[in-house]
């Protein structure tokens, strides 16, 4: 049967959505393989580091991809479209819960390597950084995560959120400045300098 099987991994995201709209279930499988984990992490970061909630939202997201594949416009990148749907889901969740739940978590990814003594402060810095990001208001947190944790360009963020480029730049700049002020006392370099 593999003789007749299409090599979906060779298709672009946009071509896969078009195939999905035609009813090709295998196209959905390929899209899921490409984006499921990525979107799961996105929801995890956006929705208070709640693993179950992130999984639920990931399922809801791909259900919407299933349903709305026919409405996808090839004028946009699929990933932009996907993040736009995900962002709207997050906004709805924020509205449902009036205030985000501040959770401080330790980014365990950085602890996979043995920490050198000089990096301990860095670890503390990261922990408080995450806490500060969680305390941001929804709009600024969304912009910040999309820009620096999902590696989206300003243009892509503008399309995802449906707002002007200048607004996105302004939000990111103000978020950076706000975080810098909040984390001033945990600046590892300053401590290092202080120790020296």
């Amino acid at each position: 049967m593999n003789l007749f099987k299409k090599k979906y991994h060779q298709y672009s995201d946009e071509a896969l959505v078009a195939l999905l709209a035609e009813g090709k279930e295998a196209a959905f499988d390929e899209l899921y393989q490409r984006y499921a984990e990525q979107m799961y992490h996105f929801f995890y970061k956006m929705l208070y580091q709640d693993q179950e909630l992130a999984a639920d939202f990931c399922q809801t997201l791909f259900m919407k991809v299933f349903e709305k594949a026919e409405t996808f416009s090839s004028a946009h990148k699929f990933s932009t479209w996907l993040y736009a749907i995900a962002s709207n889901l997050c906004k709805n969740e924020y509205r449902r819960k009036s205030k985000p739940k501040p959770i401080i978590y330790l980014a365990e990814g950085h602890m996979q390597q043995p920490l050198a003594p000089g990096f301990i402060d860095k670890e503390i810095f990261n922990r408080y950084l995450q806490s500060a990001v969680n305390k941001l208001d929804d709009k600024h947190r969304l912009c910040f995560i999309l820009r620096y944790q999902e590696d989206k360009t300003i243009q892509e963020i503008s399309e995802v959120l449906g707002c002007p480029l200048g607004t996105v730049k302004s939000r990111i700049h103000h978020t950076l400045k706000k975080l810098a002020i909040q984390l001033h006392q945990f600046d590892p370099k300053q401590k290092k300098l202080g120790n020296e």
């Binding site: 995890y44 980014a107 950084l129 810098a180 600046d187 590892p188």
Partner: peptide, 25 residues
């Protein structure tokens, strides 16, 4: 100092982008 700290925020945020969580079911 602000410049240095803002850059540190950016770099640290990029490193935080893959939090270790259990894989998707």
């Amino acid at each position: 100092e602000e410049y240095t700290l803002m850059r540190e925020v950016i770099l640290s945020s990029k490193q935080l982008k893959a939090p270790a969580i259990p894989p998707l079911d």
